[in-house]
Design a protein around this nucleic acid. Structure first.
Ligand SMILES: [Zn+2]
Ligand SMILES: [Zn+2]
Ligand SMILES: [Zn+2]
Ligand SMILES: [Zn+2]
Lengths: 146, 146
DNA sequence: ATAGAGATGATAATGATTATCAGTGATATA
DNA sequence: TATATCACTGATAATCATTATCATCTCTAT
């Protein structure tokens, strides 16, 4: 129903797919590449499950992030945002945030392995990392320099 | 009073040093290398300025971060934390957060210049970046594997 | 069927941060 | 020096995202 990797994660964690959870997962699939807040998910989920409540949305997003189906990040507005995880990207998923227009670009490339290696040498076990670049995107840079 | 670089930043931004602001800056100097929440700053600032209020603490920390005297970051507890900026580290200041004990280590090394270079080539103007590693620190790793 | 576990929605509670506002203090000027 | 202006402050109310609570509902397994 949702792709092998997601279904496995659901199964491995005994996470039953109710109507509400299905709706939320569908919303996240429909918005691949976008970073949605809980409130935004609620609005779209209500189109599929009119009675779904915000508490369920929070509970579900939290759980889906915990079992590695969603990314959870915060940018510049003090609310968490969720995004469906692309099977291939493992944990090399980074963000480029435009300081002018707020647009968020993705950066899958990963030069951080060597840094992780260094840390491992020092005795750390690296579980994950999070990288954000703050930039002016090409469009806003143009505007700014006029 | 606070070092040339800080004083310059204060002057450049017409930021007058009142008793309260001095107290807060002193607290931040006393805690070089630590990451304090607003509430934690309040407690220590009260030892110097007993009547200082939380609103002033928030206002001051916010401003000091805006004029580049403090770092402002959030880790795993949904509250912002502030840390005085080391003159030399420019914007290569990253964090290593232990998932078990929460301890935060610093990482000044910077392999990200090449990545920044790539982005510049693509037309982005990189203003800053933020990197966090989530790890088990050597101590907690030891405990975990027993 | 029936008991127990899990899931849900409404709503209250929480907690960090921000806004408001009246009072205070510094500064500049006449 | 008196006074007008403006920035600064502390108390407190308001905001807003998130979490907790709890009664109700819905599965699931016996
Ligand atoms: Zn932009
Ligand atoms: Zn993303
Ligand atoms: Zn640790
Ligand atoms: Zn730091």
């Amino acid at each position: 129903m949702f792709g092998k990797s997601i279904n496995n994660k659901l199964k491995d964690n005994d996470y039953r797919l109710t109507g509400q959870r299905t709706a939320i997962l569908e919303v996240m699939m429909d918005n691949q590449g976008r970073h949605l807040s809980a409130e935004e998910v609620l609005v779209q989920a209500r189109e599929k499950q009119p009675n779904i409540g915000i508490a369920t949305v929070y509970r579900t997003l939290e759980k889906l992030a915990a079992i590695d189906i969603l990314y959870k990040s915060m940018f510049n507005d003090d609310k968490y945002r969720y995004e469906i995880k692309d099977d291939h990207s493992e944990h090399h998923h980074h963000h480029i945030v435009c300081l002018a227009c707020g647009k968020i670009a993705e950066l899958e490339d990963d030069l951080l392995c060597s840094l992780e290696g260094q840390l491992e040498t020092q005795g750390f076990e690296v579980v994950d990392h999070e990288l954000k670049f703050f930039v002016y995107c090409p469009v806003c840079r143009e505007k700014k320099n006029k």
